[in-house]
């Protein structure tokens, strides 16, 4: 059961992220929700690579060649973190411009596109 705690954390992060994206009306809280979703997805990928008793997959000054964890998911997660950073930066700059135009960042009031 102890080994399943990272997976439970993944599910908790994804559920919290989806809840924040769908049910919150402050635009910045929606962006926090996407950050949580992305953290959950990245944690899921890294946890898949764990092998029992493994050390970090780096050859420089490594203590031994006994089992190492898989390095491929770590490379995938690096790419994903960069993509998440770019998305968050873009969303935040759009929110800055929305505040400049509308004067508020409540999603219920930013609603000139209707119908």
């Amino acid at each position: 059961m102890l080994w399943n705690i990272p997976y439970i954390a993944v599910v908790a992060l994804i559920v919290l992220g989806l809840y924040a994206c769908m049910f919150k009306s402050n635009l910045v809280k929606i962006i926090i929700g996407t950050s949580l979703l992305e953290a959950g997805a990245n944690l899921f990928l890294i946890t898949l690579g764990y092998r029992k008793g493994g050390i970090a997959p780096i050859f420089t000054n490594a203590p031994s060649t006994e089992s190492m964890v898989l390095p491929v998911p770590q490379a995938l997660v690096l790419t994903s973190i960069v993509i998440g950073l770019a998305v968050t930066a873009l969303l935040l700059s759009i929110v800055v411009m929305i505040y400049r135009h509308y004067g508020t960042i409540d999603a219920k009031k930013v609603r000139r596109l209707r119908g």
Binding site: T34, L45, I83
Partner: peptide, 22 residues
């Protein structure tokens, strides 16, 4: 202002889609 609003909605939807793919 309406371009900003449209862009925000589009980016959140695309991001959630991309994370499901991941």
């Amino acid at each position: 202002p309406m371009s900003m609003e449209g862009g925000f909605k589009y980016m959140v939807i695309s991001d959630i889609g991309g994370l499901s793919l991941l």
